[in-house]
Amino acid sequence: MRIYVCVKQVPDTSGKVAVNANGTLDRASMATITNPDDLAAVEAALKLKDETGAQVTVVSMGPPPAEGMLRECIAMGADDAVLISGREFGGSDTFATSQIIAGGLSNLGVGPEDIIFCGRQAIDGDTAQVGPQIAEKLNIPQVTYAAEIHKNGNTLTVKRLLEDGYMTVEVSTPCLITCVKELNQPRYMTVKGILECYKKPFTVLDYEALKDEPLIDPTTIGLKGSPTNIFRSFTPPQKGAGKMLQGSNEEMVKELAESLAKKHVI
């Protein structure tokens, strides 16, 4: 059994967010982290590895510096890493991103017992689209928002977190599961893992390596293959200074409720 985990390197939004003069994110000047939901996905895979001895492969699409993040996943316990990287892939929207990742995964081979883990959502793009789209493109079942995962034979029992409760779903392999942060507490790296992580297998798949995959086609990848295009990005206006309400208690409550309703807070 092989477990693939899709991990994305994202800007650390807990620090200072830097914006270019033209309004786009200044990614180069921001520290990067592994997308938090994806770390939960890595931990879920490693737990299954502890239980079943499965092989865990971490996969990312992104520029070459994403290697560092993938090595960290190996230092946590993953067996190997694949970086899908190439100029042709840049500017992809979620459709093209999932197309490329799905192409990469079929190139690596998704067997009948295999599982693909994704995070629920990336903290930069925030769409939560990529996981489900990969599943569609690979034609395999998907379970999103996993908050508990148990494996019994060739089926997985997954607790899906919903807004007002949860749902228990049984799914057979191969399948794709997207994980929420609440699923687990990701493990730390170990010193031994760190000493070994630069010696473990690391594959780079570029356009040349994937171009014969049926899913990879110049019209379905990169900026040209993206049905959506970012037209404009801008920093939301800063909130103004606070406003003091005056009057009787009743008047103030009424005014407060009205202004909150106007801003769609309530």
């Binding site: 230092a75 730390y188 010193v191 000493l195």
Partner: peptide, 15 residues
């Protein structure tokens, strides 16, 4: 080295 940098990051994160 890359490895020692990663160790520092990990020790700090743990602590």
């Amino acid at each position: 080295s890359k490895e020692h940098e990663l160790m520092r990051k990990n020790f700090r994160n743990f602590a």
